[in-house]
Design a protein around this nucleic acid. Structure first.
Lengths: 342, 342
DNA sequence: CTGAAAGCGCTTACAG
DNA sequence: CTGAAAGCGCTTACAG
């Protein structure tokens, strides 16, 4: 493995000159620069990352903390992850993906060892145990997902409260007066997913305001459980004319549930989900939905993080940026149907 | 940030003693060890990763190269990624996720800078441009996915040839004599996914052997294109009684295609896919399938990689390990149907 | 415009 | 059982 010393020897200059020639951090004569470039190329020289990190206190690596809860399989997460890695690379950063169960521990490990220059937290819980660690770390961090207390944090998220309101309001305008809302699994919600609560609470509040009966419930993240739960919900609320889904697996399962009862959306039941268009098109999810914009959020978060890393002033005011929900109409909502009780 | 020097000072010993006490690499008296442990805890000491890497030539990081092709959205990839990160962590490694377009370049970058101790290559193409880089790197690497030339490489993959044979054979036993095989999108296959070819060729070969007509085609990875393609395939081959899918998006779209024509599986058409059970349950994919075992493959690959990293003998014989395809019966195949032409 | 030297924070022979 | 010192491969003031 060629070191900077090898390059210096071959080019007939000092090691510091090689360093400066390659970094461009001070003027170098054309002749010397040429010799250095040639030597570096000939030897296939790449600076040793550890040595550089030690000398500069910068690793060129961002940490990405994606907590996957047990019994939760979240393919949607990949979209956030790609949004983060792609944008990170645009700025010259690599991404350390940390998926272990104990996120606080992991965060402590990668920040205190200075393995990373900054971190992105995914899947943020309302009272996330990683936040105290992040606040104490010397590296900056950004969240994708909104905790209860955002003080001292940079937060990026879909505006889930607005999403809840939009869903209910949309149904209300169409004339619906009784709705079901199926969210992610209860145990997942308990330990993660602050967004579930925010959407649900806002939906409930809006429903109350409009005189709508809203039945909120949790649904599993896979078959056959989620199908059973959806059927049970339809049975329990025979007069509900609209179904809101904050759960991708439920959106995938619903067609089977409806087909099994010869129900159609929107004729018999109006349906609205919350997932990305990309996801809808990959998995043929046929319902109108609130776009969750994972790639955009990932990209925004990294952009901001990179700016923070380059910034000397850590007391720069923190931001909470909520992306407005956009409704993608796939024709699955209409005026209240005449659902036949089964 | 506390350094080993700070700990040494507080404990009243030398820096080397701190290092040895913490690593346990040589005998330390109980008294000293206790003092060191206390000091380290009090200061919240964590070794600087860059310094340690520089001194030991070991980073504790594995590179994971996941090429995502343009226009390809591969949520299934997340299962491999999690299999890799989880197992890596079990062995004390963190994972650097690299998703950039130019995989060869990325691999060169992370290996020659010694950012990683070893690499896992995902999405391996038959003639993968990353392989020459990997062969030249001083770090070991393992592949998930099988290239044309496996020499000098450790390879882990589903036995896609056997999968192709199993699919055709299963249909043959049920009495089918004309089948359609829909694979991933052509451009994705061209630039990546060796596995698509392997399954297809083996299926074609087996079909020929059994006197079965097999129509192989590519299908897109999202709606509405994939639905159109499936409809066109059914139209083009009205006498085909079985449909094989090596494409998750096609499996998700097929129910809509069949419903649109009032066809049912297996009564009118026998259907068989290739995806993980986890995936099937999350997205309500209702067809019998060959289990792709992504988590198992990811885990196997990392286990092997870790062993290689610890191994002094780089000439240890290389392995090609193919996981046997298992058929998960979801009741979507039967004797040849009486598909009505539309 | 260029070089010699210090220093980043560890680990590990070498010496006792 | 413990310490002083060299060395890993860079970057960057300091000096000229």
């Amino acid at each position: 493995m060629a070191t900077i010393g090898d390059v210096a020897r071959l080019a007939g200059v000092s090691r510091s000159t090689v360093s400066y020639a390659l970094s461009g951090k001070r003027p170098i004569s054309d002749r010397v620069r040429q010799r250095v470039d040639d030597a570096a190329r000939e030897l296939g020289f790449t600076p040793n990352a550890g040595a550089r990190a030690l000398a500069t206190n910068q690793t060129g690596v961002l940490g990405l903390l994606a907590e996957f809860l047990p019994d939760e399989f979240a393919p949607a997460m990949l979209q956030y992850i790609l949004g983060v890695t792609d944008t990170a690379r645009d700025f010259g950063y690599d991404v350390l993906l940390v998926s272990e169960a104990d996120g606080a521990d992991a965060l402590q490990r990668i920040t205190s060892s200075r393995l990373v220059d900054g971190v992105v937290l995914l899947n943020v819980a309302e009272d996330d145990k990683r936040l105290p660690v992040l606040r104490a770390a010397r590296q900056p961090g950004v969240l994708i997902g909104m905790p209860l207390d955002c003080s001292g944090l940079d937060v990026f998220d879909l505006d889930f409260e607005e999403a809840g309101r939009v869903m209910v309001e949309h149904m209300h305008e169409l004339g619906h007066r009784e709705l079901i809302l199926a969210s992610q699994p209860a145990h997942v919600v308990d330990r993660g997913g602050a967004y579930v609560w925010r959407l649900q609470r806002a939906a409930e509040h809006q429903a109350e305001k409009r005189g709508i009966r809203l039945h909120a419930a949790f649904a599993e993240s896979r078959q056959p459980e989620v199908g059973r739960t959806l059927r049970a919900l339809l049975d329990a609320h025979p007069d509900a004319t609209g179904l809101l889904l904050n759960n991708e697996a439920a959106a995938a399962a619903l067609p089977w549930v409806l087909a099994g009862r010869s129900l159609r959306a929107p004729d018999d039941l109006s349906v609205m989900g919350r997932y990305s268009d990309e996801f809808a098109r990959t998995f043929s999810l046929p319902y109108s939905s609130i776009e969750s914009a994972p790639d955009r959020l990932g990209s925004m978060a990294v952009r901001h993080l990179v700016r923070r890393i380059g910034d000397d002033r850590p007391d720069e005011p923190h931001v909470v940026r909520l992306v407005s929900p956009e409704l993608v109409d796939r024709g699955s909502t209409g005026s209240p149907g005449r659902r036949v009780r089964t």
